[in-house]
Amino acid sequence: MKQNHIIVLVIVAVVTTLLIASGLSNNDFSVDILNANRSVDFRYAYENPGKEIALSGTFDSEHQVKYDPLVDAGITIFYLVDSSGDTSQVFFHGTEPQGLRQSETVMISSAEVINNEFHAYSIQLKCPSKYNEQNHLNIESE
């Protein structure tokens, strides 16, 4: 490699760094380059209030989903059972996700505990897939 090749590469590296640095908004220096959250359970979440976490669990059908668009179209309250078997109320900031009640797994990719309330900001649902269980045929009665 020639010397000016190295100079060019250094310039490229510096410009990249500068651009990346300016992309971080002022209060956001904590953004990880590999923007990963830890998938935890309710116990961890309540023990670490204010920390952004991810969590997945199953919808608790014993409790009603509270969603009344006439009161507030942007908040849904439901109960979730996490991987350790604990149940907690979840305040989801959004409209009631379609298929929440039928879902197999509820994946919350961003949530935090504020004032001992579990607030979820983004949810994905895994619905019963056509690729597994429901293809089991139980037709013994016939």
């Binding site: 990346i20 992309g23 971080l24 953004v31 990880d32 380059i33 590999l34 923007n35 990963a36 959250n37 830890r38 998938s39 935890v40 952004e52 991810a54 994946m107 990719s109 961003s110 900001y121 983004s122």
Partner: peptide
């Protein structure tokens, strides 16, 4: 137990 963060746009756009 790492999972991708919810704000994928931000994570990818940054780089």
């Amino acid at each position: 137990n790492f999972t991708p963060s919810s704000n994928l746009d931000k994570a990818y756009h940054l780089i």
